[in-house]
Design a protein around this nucleic acid. Structure first.
Lengths: 356, 356
DNA sequence: TGTTTATGTGCAAACGATTGCACCAGCCAT
DNA sequence: ATGGCTGGTGCAATCGTTTGCACATAAACA
């Protein structure tokens, strides 16, 4: 019969008493790294007893003594943005298998909140930090890394290359998109570029600038417009801007899916259909874009893997003696997903915007 | 000049030395609840000094001493499922303002993983638990609550009503959907019900059964089919099943959006268009369903608020002296969002499936 | 003025684990 | 037979807080 009263937590001392040894012996027997110090049969008994008593280590005591929490902080702009959950999931999967756990915070793109969260997390003694919220210039982050706290940026990176990162091959993604459009006959290709303060926005734009010429695309300044944020509203605004300045284009390369969604909406408000009149591409392949009308042609990033690699790398950094840190930078390959939002250019005579 | 070497963390002792008082005095001065015990000017000095030295409480030591971690565990089936991020976000917002933090785990619907996560979290000494992963019968959860650990289920609930919960008004949601369909002239309404082991699935199905008769809908057993999971594939399978058994219907009420998405896809494979041939409704109003073709008529739940309320309630439970617990059950109102996937029934003569 | 009461501070014992060090067998080699 | 190892265990300090208690000092009362 179990007593139903408040179960006091089982401690090392309890199992020590049960076996008739000292707590330090129990401690050593329970840690695989020190178990070899103990007579095998004693260790066996201790294991048994701790099992039987349902002993679980007190994480606070462990942390206090060892200064390690087996906890890492994950900071994202907004978990509600579909790009981030798969990344977070990847991180958690990588951590869980190593006995680590993640605490999460949202910044809503506010750098002061980022700083605040990092403070909070440090105060809680996190062993490392994974940041998906960084801007290219991020003094706070460089400082962290310099102080010796393991930090990795995911999806984005900071310009300061001493901070480890796991990102996607942005330039290659844009190159794929452009070759795809070129193969469909497009020559006047516009670009809705993302915020240049974010590495993703900057790298994708850089890719566009790098490849447009060599691929034979029309190189018109009016064909590029910059979004202030990666969201639908900005996508709409940018299309308005493109149309307002009279740029002629048969396709728009958008720096991410949400911009593309907004772009398509704005186009259709102006009587321009996608893909009949204008082809549109996205970036990220976030959930549901394959169910949109039209289904979005986009670049699939390995979000889950990005997170998983970051989690693994961070644990590696944490468990490696400090000082040996040469910041690693992992770049994952992407994949072009062709769907309905891109189509071969119409023969010139049938093309309203081009002739008018 | 700051030394760039490894900054040792500032402790109570450091600020005590700086001010020339005992650590216990500092401890008391820093805690708003005990500050009144200290001479105001001394307290003032201590505050200043702790500020200046950038003192931050050592969370592990605090936890060890007080047995409280200001951490709560959040367990969801899969953070990648768009239903959950807004809930999690709500929880975190509620917690952050009270100085709490959330650690997260995914079960993928596996109850053993749920148990495992709960174990892990308890071992880390969480002050409470928010579970979005529970099934109606969930022995582990009832046990937890009985042991005195504050637990709340969100979005779902367990049958055992001693476990607090924050959920949506499921029956009312279904009622709204049905009145909407009835007002459009539908009488033969099918139901793709969700898993009955989940309270959401069961409650929505119960609502359907409760209201279909009184509203004058055809009460045919063949019009109900049960999905084994809340996903697109099951939505497709259920439509196949409905069609296979020859049921006649002009509308399908789906137990959630993902089932609806799958249902629409399957219908269209069979040459049935939505909404022209069959109206379809979802539940949850998850992101992007307004951009689908057709945009989905659905029930909007207040996901963020569900999470927020749960977070608030949990903190209340944690900070209230134990024993006073009368499990609260919060039910939040929902909203019908009419979009393009529902339409007035065609005049009988024009209706292929009905006449054939 | 002497006794009581308040009021502010310090003391020291926890909380539960880890870990350097001391100790004590027993064993081998000289 | 004695000395030195070595391998297994116990001892005790320590991590940084919180908090019941003791103890001053000063204020209030008789």
């Amino acid at each position: 019969m179990q007593k139903t009263s408040i179960k006091k937590r089982v401690t090392l001392k309890d199992v020590a008493n049960a076996v008739g040894v000292h707590v330090s012996t129990v401690s050593r027997a329970l840690d695989p790294r020190t178990r070899h110090l103990i007579t095998p049969e004693v260790a066996e008994q201790i294991l048994k007893a701790s099992e039987r008593l349902d002993y679980r280590q007190n994480a606070a005591a462990y942390s206090l003594k060892t200064n390690r929490t087996r906890t890492i902080g994950v900071v994202v702009p907004d978990i509600t943005n579909p790009v981030f959950p798969p990344i977070i999931r990847g991180v958690e999967d990588a951590l869980a298998s190593r006995g680590y756990v993640a605490i999460l915070g949202n910044t809503d793109g506010d750098m002061r909140r980022e700083t605040g969260l990092v403070e909070t997390f440090r105060s809680r003694g996190v062993d490392g930090l994974i940041l998906a919220s960084v801007e290219r210039e991020d003094a706070a982050v460089s400082k962290l890394a310099a102080e010796g706290l393991p930090v990795i940026t995911v999806n984005r990176r900071v310009d300061d290359s001493t901070v480890a990162s796991v990102v996607n091959d942005e330039a290659e993604g844009i190159r794929r998109v452009l070759t795809h459009l070129v193969s469909l006959g497009h020559r006047r290709v516009a670009n809705i570029a993302g915020p240049q303060s974010l590495s993703t926005g900057a790298a994708r734009y850089a890719g566009f600038e790098k490849y447009r010429g060599p691929m034979g695309l029309v190189d018109d300044r009016d064909l590029v417009v910059f979004a202030n944020a990666f969201n639908e509203a900005e996508g709409e605004r940018c299309v308005e801007e493109l149309l307002a300045c009279g740029a002629e284009f048969t396709a728009i390369v958008c720096s991410n899916d949400r911009l593309a969604v907004g772009a398509i909406a704005a186009l259709s408000r102006h009587g321009l259909r996608c893909p009949e009149d204008v082809s549109v591409t996205g970036y990220n392949d976030m959930p549901m874009v394959e169910r949109m009308q039209p289904p979005l042609t986009t670049i699939r990033i390995q979000s889950n893997k990005v997170g998983f690699e970051a989690g693994q790398l961070l644990v590696k950094m944490i468990e490696r003696p400090p000082g040996e840190y040469e910041a690693e930078h992992i770049v994952l390959p992407i994949e072009l997903i062709v769907r309905g939002s891109t189509r071969a250019i119409r023969p010139p005579n049938g093309r309203g915007r081009e002739t008018g």
